[in-house]
Amino acid sequence: MSALTFVLKQPLKQRVDMSPLVCQRLTELTLTQIGALPLQQGKQQIPVEALFEVSGTDTAQIVIKNSSDKLDFIGKELHGGSITVEGDAGAYCGMGMKAGNITVLGNVGLFAACEMKKGQLTVHGNAGDFLGGALPGNKMGMKGGVVLIKGNVGERAGDHLRRGVILIEGNAGDYCGSRMTAGTIAVMGKVGNHLGYAMRRGTLLLWQSAKIPAMFNDCGTHTLAFLPLLFASFKGLDSKFADKASAFNRVQRYGGDMAEMGRGEILLKSVA
């Protein structure tokens, strides 16, 4: 069976809500029925076939070709199967995802992996602000799963993160790990200002020196036993994080945010 493929016919002028096109909602539908599904574009509802050329039969594997950064909600609440996006994805990619895999070969917009529960989101390009965050007004962001960003991420990555792992091979913007409740964010590149702002619990794992906020206190240099286990869990990823040379277990530990609960930590790879 060939993957169910959606090829975008032409550049979009309006944003499109792609949430109906997830694996579990397409099983047992014919190509004609899929082509007739309504998609919200701006203020209008238009059928899938008006925007995409649809082919293939395997609804457990979806491929979106010629993708655009105006395609929002790709893989929303995906509950198994895989979605591959050849190109960019818009906002809310993988929002509330429960299982499965989403791979984006380009960039993703705001709120990628927002309130995600399980599964894996891999982005070969960059991610916008509020990666793995919570919807405005909500208190809990991503609750599980793995997010791997090979490029850079915007501001407030992991805002309100509750559980799960966010791996960033590039740089992270300001307020990385803000208001984190728990979970792990690992950044191989540089991080911006206000790291871990209002962080309650959780771990920020850094490879490069960072401007440590005043609300984080130095707890000294330590060899931590959980780090080898954490790095071992990255072994199956197609990422620098899977590289043995990237692993370490000796860190400078900073505890904070002391203006909050103060049970969070920034673990900076020790050079000593």
């Binding site: 599980g144 728990a182 959980f226 286990l229 954490l230």
Partner: peptide
């Protein structure tokens, strides 16, 4: 005493308990 840290790694839950020689995992 509240300083313990939970880590969910590969679906398994671990506890990091601060002790005088470092951390008990």
């Amino acid at each position: 005493d509240g300083f313990q840290i939970s880590k969910l790694i590969n679906g398994k839950r671990y506890w990091r308990i601060p002790v005088m020689d470092g951390e008990f995992l």
